[in-house]
Design a protein around this nucleic acid. Structure first.
Lengths: 687, 687
DNA sequence: GACTTTGTCACCTACGTGACAAAC
DNA sequence: TTGTTTGTCACGTAGGTGACAAAG
């Protein structure tokens, strides 16, 4: 019987990690019984169905993005029951279109939900608490997707990779680099539990990854539950991946579109360092309502009372206090209603949370975002924002001892600074349509004012090449050259991200190996030493770039934990090598350290509203199902679309090559999570 | 854009039904946003994975079933982290083996988890509260499955069908028939959210259907959330279905194995009638702890206090009481620990709950069950237990006005009366492995002492023919004859159960029609008038039996809500028509009415411990992928297995015939739920 | 009028959160 | 030490339960 595998990353469940260690009697989670950690049964609970309805149509979303009063519309789209859902006749975006194996074309647009809130946090230097049992991210990572093919199936994923190779410390009210990063644990892709779903379904609502938990628990006894292991005091960058595939089994052979929202960058901590962050969390997170300083310093009183009680540890006294508190709470409840609507960020002076910075004059201007966005695209190596805005999407902190001399680029694109009034939008829940009258922050209302859909990096057909680079650091991207020649798709992302694996591994290798190894393939999500490195090497024809240099590491324990390389793939430069390896890692972060008082904090990150549609990355599948006819020309809507269509015709064989494996999410998930690894593979994770 | 479809039955979500109507800010459910009711995105949250481990191996389960000290073992298997999980080398059961399209053979065994608790309830006449917003079943419906092919994918489902066509009333402390049943709403299959999963995964843990909710809300505004509509004061029978299929899309063409546990029968109520049931629920359901009469009549005091407070409706007074209660509660908490371990049923004298009955002398004897089981099998028409033990699995109460003269059989097999001491076993949760020290009833400990695995009806290759009959009422089972001739598989169950549809419809027809109608097929789960009845008729070559007689009903609104017939299929008699239509409905229930004081209450239901492995039903798929070589001979383990294998070789084309539809759960689920029905289909549900 | 259904309430379970003090 | 990590606690949210009274 195999031992637990600490690195398992599963889809979210209703269980708290802690519950997995105890026998809970009733109502576990979605009818699944977590007794056996090895179980990776995917849950497929239904969502409220709106039969025949197109839900939030593309037009709606688009309108929301473009309209000045977008807020209201967006809300309706995201949270309402699609009042005026304009059925099927969805207008397909005209920009770049991404052909797939099946000849279907789409032009995905991804925006970050709750961008405003994210930005507020980012300005202060977002901190995310990681705990032993796993902690959710507070601004939940949510995206709004449009431009998908309604009928095609998509798999949505996210992962969190090291943002740099530095270790930080909060000193003098600011975050500062404090040395080299510790070795990263292998990261895994977190597959959205709704995957796969049709484009129509994904577009109907905001896609939330709130179930993902962050932990620092290496010997991750609970790791099998949608948790990802991070290093405390390190900076991380969440990423979103969009894959058109109707089966998770096909993930390895599918094209990944990766989107990076710089404003979601954060530093993992075990305890908050910046009290401004703490306050911002308290003010915005409903679950922290108990800590809100509502009105006249009630919290202070409580806090003190608690202090007294806790210090003496007298049961009797504590009980007394408890009663006291309850009474006071009851009294407060009368005024609570108001509270609930006022609190959040709205209550908190944005200015008080931010520190004015000469670098970001446009911060808070909703409309500027769009304007700024384009300029950025044209200037990938935007020098102004080295710190928070440097985004070496790849995992520089790869394997423990070795600090690769990986090429990195300074990220130029950022989020727009649109400072929306309604901060309650990113309340945390996925905007449930629930009748509870007391509160409903109208998620996405004002916070996510999606400017113009054209701004950000367009995924498919060579949207401005500048954009792609920041996702694909040159040196780390295997097969890069080939794709460059083809002028279209970069290789697919590995399902594994992180530094646990040698950076030299090629995503393609990984995929190929996966193909060969079938179900119990270690490549998916884990670094399993001793697994056919030879095989992977042999099967990767397109492997190129920095890959070969690092191949040796395959012999190490991390061998099959392609995290490093995989991540690299994501951050590899675009086909147009114009931007390759321009900014070295070190420099990028020197200036960064975003303490709460640090100047770059305000980080007006010129990125227009389009931080919502940031990175794009359109990695090509392993096999060059690439497109001959689509030149990296200007992303003219019509032309791009045409090219995409042309490309589509030339595909249809690559992605379909994989053997007719079972179309089951779980099998693939096993792979992704590295389950069923025979051998000592699991041991590594215990390190 | 289609309107809501009230009958939609979705997979469970974390949301309460009510939450679907309101915008909730944070942490909705598994990252899905229920804003758009039309969304049927399946959730695939991970379960705790136990990589490479076989989890609860078959041996373990078997051992648990056979060992006298099974309790402890069962617990470990169900709730623990599989301490001594004896990996892969699972011993395959030797009895009947069920060949599938892929030639894989298996011999599923299903036992009811928490059988003891169920039996306690059953003896009193189980009542389940149904509410507008949907109420979960208290003893959660959970099963333990073994004997599956580890690598094959299975889909597990359950449904709840009318147990008879009577309406009940609780009079003089007992349930009595009070007229003819009201028309049943169409029922839908509840697909376990983990579906599809491998046999290995299913066997790793107890499969719980606790997310299913019962409602009486016809205009089911919330119906899209795993709720099923029942009639108050009517008797229902939950059923479990096991299908080997790697894709929900293939469900219609797959063989259903149906298991019925008589002890899960219940009467739907809007308010509890039998206070003994109330007390039993309170004593066993953790969520009702607040009502427990812990110690010295504290509850009475509270109740009275509440009464006073509520009657006067004085806010001040209520608050005062509130504080008072809290204090008392706090005081109790000191003694709670003990409480938690003692309460449940243990605290309640079993004898006090039961009423001695001359008919059931063996009740409470753990070992007798096994002995009694076989005798029963040989005597399908066991006359002694007409009431609670009558199990016309089909839905007699089919369409409204007509009370079919459907043939029904009195169910003979029952559960063993093993009266286990530990009542806390069926605590409700799926036995989560959680570190909470205070309580963990050790689900399955003593309550589910699985006697001998051979007793109950064996699913595959003609296990004692007597068993099958009670699942497949003769007259209602289309294609029955053909299968009889083939001597193997009865037709598949319809995905729809219930009386909304005309009983004459053949499951096969349904499936065929589904095939033709593709995705937006009304057949799945709804009664859609106006949909190709002709088609269904034309495509059902094997249609036989009572079907033709009822064909007229197809013209009615219920036409395509095959519920009636489908259900019939489940309860159709076995190929050996020896038992067909023996006991008319009426008689069966006359004696039944199991009031708390009714004699049959004790219902020693001779069924040995195998109520856990009760019904079996091994319906064949639409196409006669039947087996030529497997004669309905005695269920000799080896011979049966051999036959099964032989059969397997002859298959491989029937089930595989369906077009390569997307392997997505959602699509199929849409079908199952009747989504995407163009036309006035949805209106019916609003009735 | 008898019975059933519904809405509200108190009381729980479950768990998300940050504060804190103790532990490391 | 010093800085970080952990465990516990109070206080929220979310929702499951039966009791009850009021409404059908």
């Amino acid at each position: 019987m195999a031992a637990y595998h600490p690195f398992l990353l599963q889809r979210p469940t209703d269980f708290s990690v802690s519950s997995l260690l105890t026998q809970t009697q009733y109502f576990p989670s979605a009818g699944t019984h977590p007794h056996y950690p090895g179980s990776l049964l995917p849950k497929l609970p239904h969502l409220p169905g709106h039969p025949g309805s197109a839900g939030a149509s593309y037009e709606e979303v688009l309108a929301a993005q473009q309209a000045a009063a977008a807020a209201a519309v967006a809300v309706a789209t995201a949270g309402g029951s699609a009042p005026g859902a304009t059925a099927p006749g969805v207008v397909r975006p005209l920009r770049a279109i991404q052909p797939e194996e099946d000849g279907v074309v789409d032009d995905p647009k991804v925006t970050l939900e709750g961008k405003d809130l994210w930005e507020k946090f980012h300005k202060l230097g977002t901190e995310m608490v990681i705990t032993k049992s796993g902690r959710r991210m507070f601004p939940a990572y949510k995206v709004r997707v449009t431009g998908l093919d309604k009928k095609s199936k998509y798999i949505l994923l996210m992962d969190i990779v090291a943002a740099d190779d530095a270790r930080y410390k909060f000193h003098n009210s600011r975050w500062m680099v404090a040395g080299k990063a510790d070795p990263e644990m292998p990261k895994r892709m977190y597959i959205h539990p709704d995957s796969p779903s049709t484009g129509e379904q994904w577009m109907q609502k905001v896609v939330s990854f709130h179930k993902l938990k962050l932990t620092n628990n290496i010997s991750d006894k609970h790791g099998f539950v949608s948790t990802t292991i991070l290093n405390s005091m390190h900076k991380y960058q969440p990423r979103f991946h969009l894959v058109r595939a109707n089966d998770i089994m096909k993930l390895p052979y599918s094209t990944f579109r990766t989107y990076v929202f710089k404003e979601t960058e954060f530093i993992a901590v075990t305890a908050y360092q910046n009290e401004k962050i703490t306050q911002l969390k308290i003010d915005n997170n409903p679950f922290a309502k108990g800590f809100r300083d509502t009105g006249a310093g009630k919290r202070e009183k409580k806090r003190q009372a608690l202090l007294a009680a806790q210090r003496h540890q007298e049961e009797a006294q504590r009980l007394a206090d408890h009663r006291k508190h309850r009474s006071s709470v009851a009294a407060d409840s009368c005024t609570d209603p108001e509270d609930e609507r006022v609190d959040v960020v709205g209550t908190t002076e944005p200015s008080s949370l931010m520190h004015p910075s000469p670098h970001h004059p446009h911060l808070g201007h909703p409309h500027l975002g769009a304007h700024l966005a384009h300029p950025h695209l044209g200037h990938p190596n935007f020098p102004q924002h080295p710190g928070w805005f440097t985004l070496p999407t790849n995992d520089p902190s790869s394997s423990s001892s070795e600090q690769e001399s990986l090429l990195r680029r300074t990220r130029c694109e950022d989020m727009d600074s649109a400072e929306v009034s309604d901060s309650s939008s990113e309340s945390g829940s996925t905007a449930l349509a629930k009748p509870s009258p007391s509160k409903d922050p109208l998620p996405g209302t004002s916070s996510s004012d999606y400017p113009s859909p054209n701004i950000s990096v367009g995924p498919p057909i060579h949207p401005s090449p500048h954009l792609l680079p920041y996702l694909y650091p040159h040196g780390l991207y295997p097969g890069h050259h080939m794709h460059q020649l083809l002028g279209q798709h970069p290789p697919p992302l590995s399902l594994f991200t992180g530094a646990g694996a040698p950076p030299g591994i090629h995503p393609q290798l990984l995929f190929n190996a996966q193909l060969a190894l079938a179900a119990h393939h270690p490549l998916f999500g884990h670094a399993y030493p001793g697994l056919g490195s030879a095989l992977s090497a042999a099967t990767s024809p397109t492997s190129g770039g920095a890959g070969p240099l690092l191949s040796e590491r395959l012999k190490a324990a991390h061998r099959f934990a392609p995290y490093g390389p995989a991540t690299s793939t994501a951050s590899a430069t675009t086909p147009s090598s114009s931007l390759l390896g321009t900014s070295p890692l070190g420099s990028a972060f020197e200036t960064v350290t975003p303490g709460s008082h640090h100047s770059p904090r305000h980080s007006p990150q010129p990125t227009s509203t389009d931080s919502s549609k940031p990175a794009i990355v359109n990695p090509t599948p392993i096999a060059p199902k690439v497109v001959a006819g689509s030149p990296p020309s200007s992303p003219t809507p019509s032309s791009a679309a045409a090219a995409a269509v042309a490309d589509a015709k030339q595909l249809n064989n690559n992605s379909k090559s994989p053997p007719p494996i079972s179309s089951d999410l779980k099998s693939i998930e096993k792979m992704v999570n590295g389950l069923e690894n025979k051998g000592d593979l699991a041991d590594k994770t215990e390190k």
